[in-house]
Design a protein around this nucleic acid. Structure first.
Lengths: 166, 166
DNA sequence: TTAAATTTTCAGAATTTTTTGAAAATTTAG
DNA sequence: CTAAATTTTCAAAAAATTCTGAAAATTTAA
């Protein structure tokens, strides 16, 4: 398999995976392109490689920066902005987990908690409250597990930094 | 909060969560309705409750059965089919995990493995292969963890069945 | 300053996904 | 069997999402 072919294939696979998990197809493509490339790219290069418009490239690069999956890289003597992806896959996973937890799990958790205050005493109401309570408990456990994972990573990070400073 | 209000709110929340995670909005609504209801419902009741068409209700109920999240329940003396949701949230989570693993993680794993055969020796090619290899390894670990979770649960299930039969 | 380069925005267009609803197929009561 | 009840299918319509491209805003070199 040739490199260019493999890259295209990787971009396509990543895009499909993204849309299966609720991530915009183009955002996943841009991410894949940057993951597959060993240098920082400009907006124009992203547009060219993926045959997408400037607006689209721009918005998705910005969104990837919001997720902390892509960062700007200054290139001396160049006016344009260059973008590079975080390549450490564990860091990538951690950042996606943090972002989805923050945007989705935490609000879910809060909303579900509200629903347990059903002022009614019928069997239907009891059943409903039990279901919601079970789900809330489950969401809490997931939330807690992700939190532990992220905290463990912070400690690891902190430990590494300390070693460097020592 | 009144039961009906809480139910509506639950259905809406579940639908939002579903679409954030790549699950069809209506499928999530139907699932939520059945989770929130302490009895089996007919297609007509689902249509009525959610104000959706017959075709839509039918297709989504069928898809939920494919996911093993909903099952038909025979009601003696009734011609219509009744549907009920699995309520054990751990079982629900396990079934969703199994299905997404089978449909998404496993194919991903296979596709990524292909991409590591880049017959080229440039630094770019090396970088690409390393990235893909890292991701493949990561996907493998996720796959393995989910597998362990599911297997543990099978044992638990098997153990429970044995107890019942003993 | 000035103007060229670059980034940002967003209304309308294009695309993709989902839904409808009516016809066809199937099932079952009588 | 016959026909009423019910389920299933799927082409077309509707809705939701994503993308484009050009204009506006911003930045920077000179």
């Amino acid at each position: 398999m040739k490199l260019e072919e493999a890259k295209r294939s990787f971009i396509q696979t990543w895009a499909r995976l993204g849309s299966e998990w609720g991530i915009n197809r183009t955002m996943a493509q841009v991410h894949a392109l940057l993951l597959a490339t060993d240098k920082a790219l400009t907006t124009d290069e992203v547009m060219e490689e993926l045959s997408i418009s400037r607006g689209n490239a721009h918005m998705n690069l910005r969104e990837l920066m919001n997720w902390n999956l892509v960062y700007r890289e200054a290139v001396p003597g160049e006016r344009k902005e260059y973008f590079r992806a975080e390549k450490d896959i564990w860091v990538v996973a951690k950042r996606i987990a943090r972002e989805r937890k923050r945007r989705e799990i935490e609000p879910l958790f809060r909303e579900l908690s509200q629903m347990q205050n059903v002022e009614e005493d019928s069997p239907e109401a009891k059943h409903f409250v039990k279901t919601v309570t079970d789900i809330t408990g489950f969401a809490g456990k997931i939330d807690q597990s992700v939190e532990t994972m992220l905290k463990a990573d912070e400690n690891w990070f902190f430990g590494t930094i300390l070693k460097l400073l020592r």
